[in-house]
């Protein structure tokens, strides 16, 4: 997991590899600390995330809600087709904005 400060109000978190139960168990505490520790919009870069299971989706949902209460946003960007299929299957886009590319996500957040 890599953190990139894009501006005073936007940070990008890069998640790579498999976002399965084991991986989420290992990274969730740090991910949540980054998101809830700041008062910034968060762009999650999934370009190199090859797998995404339901526990990762729950992690995105709970953190998106934390930011929402602060008037901030969490957006997802760059999902590979097989990950995008998972997002569409659970209708994640109804709650979290999803962008095809990191560039599109940055543009939306003005970063």
């Amino acid at each position: 997991m890599e953190l990139i400060e894009l501006s005073d109000s936007v940070q990008q978190i890069v998640l790579e590899g498999r976002l399965d139960t084991v991986a989420v168990g290992a990274l969730e505490t740090r991910f949540t600390a980054i998101v809830s520790g700041g008062s910034k919009d968060v762009l999650v870069d999934l370009t190199n995330a090859a797998f995404c299971g339901s526990l990762a989706i729950r992690m995105f949902l709970s953190n998106a809600r934390v930011l929402q209460r602060r008037g901030r946003r969490l957006v997802l960007a760059g999902a590979q087709p097989q990950v995008q299929e998972v997002f569409e299957t659970v209708a994640l886009g109804a709650i979290i904005p999803i962008f095809a590319s990191v560039q599109d996500g940055r543009a939306e957040l003005g970063a």
Partner: peptide, 23 residues
């Protein structure tokens, strides 16, 4: 249930089993 069909938090395990069912 899909996230556009639930209010509040999805049921524990519900999302995973939704994925299983859809595939």
């Amino acid at each position: 249930k899909r996230l556009d069909e639930v209010e509040g938090e999805p049921q524990i395990g519900g999302l995973g089993l939704l994925l299983v069912r859809r595939f």
